[in-house]
Design a protein around this nucleic acid. Structure first.
Length: 925
RNA sequence: GCGGAUGUGGUGAAAUUGGUAGACACGCCAGACUUAGGAUCUGGUGCCGAGAGGUGUGCGGGUUCGAGUCCCUCCAUCCGCACCA
């Protein structure tokens, strides 16, 4: 009986489905464990071998936890709103929902063949109205809340309005963009529009005119995390700054808590650091500088208030609102010229142009608050309008950029550090004594900072302040395939649509393009195409991709609840995700937004935890190995080894990697059939008559022809082999190129494992007592595997199995007891083959997944006997894989008694004995 | 520039608190069986050396009886952020 993985795997997959093996229910008698994968966007290209990597790891862990007696929630779904389906719709007219359904069907089929233990009855799709109903509902809650700094959490807008009605805004401490003051009387006198305008400045989901990243090619705005190096993440199109009225999320309100929460969760340092950088907290002070001959003042933010006596000029961003007011007549044209040039530069050019120092004096002067000195005011594009106050107090001796600026324009550089040389560059360390600074003289940076802030506050010109780099996230997109907002407009005031009318479904449109007037595609929908049309008009924007993915992990707990986004008893039972696996590319997007929403829902009492993902593992990317062939100007293909030293005269073409043999040469016949352009291809072959190619590691992608799909591998080797091989490749978190060659090793291992149970083609196991040797192999494996899984080292786990099976094969062990235990150990890794073997061992009525995970017995791990002297070199060193129960004294006595030892000691008495229990013993003579 | 990570055979990689470096697997070499094999099995395989032996975890130092592991300097590669005041 051969290892017939094809029949066996499909048989068990069907069995699991029929029996509902992976359905889970809340069960208060068992501890819960929640294992989650980042759900995929179902793209048209289907899965390649990289996608399931994390899914396999999480599946193994979920099964392991289940065997350990946990009630494991392990669901899967689809992040099914997104650009590609919409782009396809624009080209073909096919409704994105149709494309999406087709893609999901394909994904499901591909996922199913790998044998995951997902509870598919809990599937969610962000594009399904049953689901986005609750995305809309959460949006409504955000719209209806503000962040109160006294209670340090989100509170209802009604509370705020009540306070306004009683006392105006004088007693309010909240996160807001509103800067004025009003009394209760004034509040009552405001028009509805004016009131709403003020409230918008407090709402957590708000509408505001702001600078946004506009991507003309995609026809939509983008959030900061959707832009990489100044171009759009999707498609790589240029992005420009544009002032638009858009929905935003006041994520800034949660900056401090998002930072603090990182200390409580088990994520990699690199992701935590990325989030910390993104939030970008810096502490310092804001200081107002009075302006000569003007009632205006300039507020700056500085992290170095201790260097305030080193200020020798100020720099404003070219867009700073005061520039045009303050500019002197003689500087006006130069300033305008400079502003124009700065405005022309895209964000990207400005970043690329870091080395060029540019700037322009505006002919106005500020007054130093302590010395009364006149400080020239400049504009320069190294100061960003969007950070801090858009203005800096320049301290050239303590900041390199200020220093370079001062040198370039010949501005004064005042040294306020004792015994520090600043003739070449600024001194940016904080360990020098402050000098030339009046009341700060002689202090170190830290105490100077405190004293400076005290002085600034005493003078009433500023205060200690914390600044964040994190900016509010733009929440609207001018696209069709996203969640519609549950918002309509009446007199241009946004109004929420009531809960009982949700979901607001996506209306049908004739085209998926913006209208001729530049309105988003939803503006094309006729009034009757909306399932609920309210007010004068509906909101035409849709929500961004991250809306649905910010809370999906909650919906799995209660996926078909029609009355709540998640039932209270369900979320109280399952709580947050214990293990979350997914790529690190979401570090500052999804992973930050879901933390934000979770904290908000926690504040409002809907869920009992404020961090969504307890432990996070970022699986590495699986890369493809492209095959590159070289064509000369006549279109003749040359073998790579003939031209390797100079490829400049050749054109590179990427060849489908399925046509590559032995990792390096092209199957010529197959190549001719592959594409018409190669049908009559002329060749310059090497000595062996081959055409070699260059291999290069790229992202796995259809356009590089380097995709390896799980389908072919499952067909050829089976799902269990694929699962174990993907784990065997190396540490989960590392990126690595895919190489199919090694898969035969894992496949051979499974065959070997199968053979343990079969003699002469018949299933045959022995029932006697196992040998001590076999028990030792088994228990060593149990121990190793527990350790491997507890530290998420899936690759060493596979090796442990290989070692065990090699040993048992050598021992000719086919003992039922040993093999039963081994099978349970292997079940999470290779569920199909182990289930088949289980049914042979114990009948069809019991499932291997209902067993409990083996526990190792210390007695089998003990070794005995001293082995041999290792070296002699002034000291004598022994390996003594020794009994655990011996005391160090006993070990010493035994070793000293050995004739070998005496020979080396030559009658000396050791001066010192060093014993490493269970390992090595050294004598120093 | 700042921050994070990683450097171990021909390759992917092990080495759990410092304790026989290279487990396990691929590849390669030799052999067995076979009409054949991209099947199976056996043995070998870090490097130098015929051998004994020497040497070896990016470089150079240090701590230690003992360092891939800990500390310092440097180098290389990858990732993230980047004029953030």
């Amino acid at each position: 009986m051969e290892y017939d993985f094809r029949n066996l795997e499909s048989k068990w997959r069907k069995n699991w489905q029929d029996r509902g093996t992976y359905h889970v229910k809340e069960d208060p008698t068992k501890p819960k464990y929640y294992v989650l994968d980042m759900f995929p966007y179902p793209s048209g290209a289907g899965l390649h071998v990289g996608h399931p990597l994390g899914y396999i790891a999480s599946d193994i862990y979920a099964r392991y936890k289940r065997l350990q007696g946990f009630n494991v929630l392990h669901p899967m779904g689809y992040d099914s709103f997104g650009l590609p389906a919409e782009q396809y719709a624009i080209q073909t007219g096919q409704h994105p929902a149709v494309t999406t359904d087709e893609n999901i069907a394909r994904y499901r089929q591909q996922l199913d063949q790998i044998g995951f233990s997902y509870d598919w009855s809990r599937e969610v799709r962000t594009s399904s109205p049953d689901y986005y109903k609750w995305t809309q509902w959460i949006f409504k809650q955000l719209f209806d809340c503000y962040y109160d700094l006294k209670t340090d959490k989100a509170e209802r807008i009604s509370t705020l309005i009540h306070a306004f009605e009683m006392d105006g805004n004088s007693n309010i401490q909240a996160v807001t963009d509103f800067e004025g003051q009003f009394t209760s009387t004034e509040w009552h006198a405001y028009s509805a529009q004016q009131k709403e305008e003020i409230i918008q400045a407090y709402r957590l989901a708000y509408l505001a005119e702001s600078w946004v990243n506009w991507c003309p090619a995609l026809g939509t705005v983008l959030a900061n995390d959707e832009i990489i190096n100044g171009v759009s993440e999707r498609g790589g199109h240029p992005v420009e700054q544009k002032r638009m009225r858009q929905w935003s999320m006041r994520i800034k309100a949660y900056a401090e808590r998002l930072l603090e929460g990182l200390d409580r969760i088990d994520w990699s340092d690199s992701i935590k650091e990325q989030q910390r950088n993104w939030i970008g907290k810096s502490q310092g002070a804001s200081v107002s500088f009075a302006i000569e001959n003007s009632i205006e003042s300039i507020e700056v933010f500085t992290t170095r208030p201790d260097t305030i006596f080193g200020v020798s000029f100020m720099v404003l961003a070219p867009e700073h609102p005061l520039v045009n007011q303050l500019v002197s007549a003689e500087c006006k044209s130069a300033v305008e010229q400079y502003q124009k040039e700065a405005g022309l530069k895209s964000e990207r050019d400005r970043q690329a142009d870091v080395k060029n120092i540019t700037g322009q004096a505006i002919g106005a002067y500020a007054i130093h608050p302590f010395t009364g000195d006149r400080i020239p005011i400049w504009i320069g594009d190294y100061v960003l309008a969007s950070y801090g106050t858009g203005a800096v107090m320049a301290v050239p001796c303590g900041d390199q950029r200020d220093y370079d600026f001062a040198k370039y324009f010949g501005l004064p550089i005042k040294n306020i550090f004792a015994n520090v040389d600043i003739t070449e560059q600024a001194y940016t360390e904080k360990d020098a004594q402050i000098a030339e600074s009046d009341f700060l003289n002689g202090l170190d940076a830290k105490s100077a900072m405190i004293k400076a802030i005290e002085a600034i506050e005493a003078k009433g010109i500023g205060k200690g302040k914390t600044n964040f780099r994190l900016r509010d996230a733009v929440f609207s997109r001018q696209r069709y395939w996203g969640e519609p907002f549950p918002v309509c407009y009446q007199n241009e005031i946004p109004e929420l649509i009531s809960d009982d009318l949700l979901p607001i479904e996506l209306p049908e449109v004739d085209k998926y393009l913006p209208t001729e007037d530049g309105e988003p595609p939803l503006a094309r929908a006729k009034k009757e195409a909306w399932n609920h049309f309210q007010g004068e008009r509906m909101e035409f924007n849709t929500m961004p991709g991250w809306a649905g993915s910010s809370w999906y992990f909650l919906r799995y707990m209660d996926p078909s609840n029609e009355n709540e986004f998640v039932g209270k008893e369900k979320v109280d039972y399952w709580k947050n995700v214990d293990l979350y696996i997914g790529g690190s590319e979401h570090a500052t997007g999804h992973l930050l937004y879901s933390r934000f929403w979770t904290k908000f829902l926690y504040d409002q009492g809907y869920i009992p935890f404020d961090e969504p993902f307890e432990k996070l593992i970022n699986q590495g990317m699986i890369l493809g190995k492209s095959a590159i062939a070289y064509l000369d100007s006549e279109g003749k293909m040359h073998s790579y080894d003939l031209i390797a030293h100079d490829t400049s005269q050749f054109r590179e073409v990427r060849i489908l990697i399925d046509l590559i043999q032995d990792d390096e040469s092209i199957d010529i016949d197959a190549l001719r059939k592959w594409q018409p352009q190669f049908e009559k291809l002329e060749l310059k072959t090497n000595d062996q008559g081959k055409i070699l190619v260059k291999r290069e590691v790229d992202k796995m992608s259809k356009r590089w022809y380097n995709v390896v799909t799980p389908d072919d591998l499952c067909e050829k080797y089976g799902a269990d082999t694929l699962r174990m091989y993907e784990m065997f490749l190396g540490p989960l978190e590392q990126s690595k190129p895919w190489d199919t060659k090694g898969i035969t090793g894992v496949h051979g291992f499974l065959k070997k494992y199968w053979r343990l149970f079969h003699q002469n083609g018949q299933f045959e196991v022995s029932d006697g007592a196992p040998t001590k040797e076999s028990m030792k192999s088994l228990h060593k494996t149990i121990k190793r595997l527990r350790d491997d899984l507890d530290r998420f080292s899936f690759n060493t786990g596979v090796s442990s199995f290989m070692i065990c099976v090699n040993e048992l094969t050598e021992q000719k062990c086919n003992n039922r007891e040993v093999l039963t235990q081994l099978s349970i150990l292997m079940a999470p890794y290779a569920p199909h083959i182990t289930e088949e073997i289980w049914s042979k061992l114990h009948g069809d009525n019991s499932s291997i997944f209902d067993q409990s995970y083996p526990v190792f017995d210390e007695q089998y791990l003990k070794e005995s006997d001293f082995e041999y002297p290792v070296s002699f070199n002034g000291k004598l060193r022994f390996k003594v894989s020794l009994s655990v129960e011996l005391t160090p004294k006993e070990i010493e006595a035994q070793v000293l008694g050995m004739p070998e030892t005496q020979k080396y000691l030559e009658g000396n008495t050791p001066k010192k004995t060093i014993i490493v229990p269970g390992r090595i013993i050294n004598f120093v003579i």
